[in-house]
């Protein structure tokens, strides 16, 4: 297998004095989807925020396409081709839908109209509501804006924090289809999901987190078959 596009090694991070995640190591490959699952409070979101630079890592290394990005701030990480979709507060509420997408293209304004057309192709409703303030959209539409923004650059790595949170079952299905579609263009996707079964079904790799550590890493298919995992983390959701 080719070298991982995103390689996280022994990363510790947290808020205040304590660490929330301890020596986390994981990888995401071009054209593949990796998913982190685990109970609430396991530190899944913290991992993804740390990679995105929203939170600075304390120790360990984060390498994207051969370059160390650990220690960089979020805007610098974004310029290295990492596109992050936060779970909450992930749109500019006072800006229109189109302005949001323009902000998405901040680091790379080349091919703007092509990319806009692509995002409109993925989410036609964003074209219809182009001049609506994002704050006035429904939750599902906001999620599309957030996702669309991240696709306004050609990211190497796409980080998704609970992309299905707050969506109706139909929308969840749609969202995962879109993730797969985007991934097929060669982007490495790393996502954190509560909706473990559905997420693992579209994933190549899975990581199970508990208490700030990765306790299991395997093929997504193997994880789905793993009895212990399904009992502990998938059962409640099935």
């Amino acid at each position: 297998m080719a070298d991982a596009l995103l390689k996280v090694t022994d990363v510790c991070a947290g808020y205040g004095r304590g660490d929330i995640i301890h020596e986390v190591s994981l990888e995401a490959h071009a054209g593949q989807i990796a998913t982190i699952i685990g109970p609430n409070g396991a530190g899944k979101s913290t991992v993804i925020k740390t990679i995105a630079g929203v939170l600075r890592r304390r120790t360990g290394s984060i390498i994207v396409d051969g370059q160390e990005i650990g220690g960089l701030g979020a805007s610098d990480v974004a310029r290295r081709g990492v596109s992050f979709v936060p779970q909450e507060a992930n749109v500019f509420r006072q800006l229109t839908v189109t302005e949001n997408l323009q902000m998405g293209a901040w680091t790379d304004r080349a091919n703007y109209s092509e990319r806009l057309a692509r995002v409109h192709g993925l989410f036609p409703v964003l074209k219809e509501r182009a001049t609506t303030r994002a704050g006035n959209l429904s939750g599902g539409q906001r999620q599309m804006v957030a996702f669309g923004m991240a696709l306004m650059v050609d990211p190497q790595v796409l980080l998704l924090d609970e992309p299905s949170a707050g969506l109706s079952p139909v929308m969840v299905e749609q969202m995962f289809d879109t993730v797969r579609e985007v991934n097929a263009t060669g982007i490495a996707v790393l996502m954190v999901e509560q909706n473990a079964i559905q997420a693992l079904r579209i994933s190549h790799h899975g990581y199970v987190m508990a208490a700030g550590q990765i306790v299991l890493a395997d093929n997504a298919a193997n994880l789905l078959d793993n009895e212990e995992v399904s009992e502990l983390y998938l059962g409640t959701r099935a």
Binding site: S75, P86, A89, M103, W106, T107
Partner: peptide
């Protein structure tokens, strides 16, 4: 002004 963290995330 709207969302400084997201602005950073988007590379601003």
């Amino acid at each position: 002004a709207d969302n400084p963290v997201l602005a950073e995330v988007r590379g601003i």
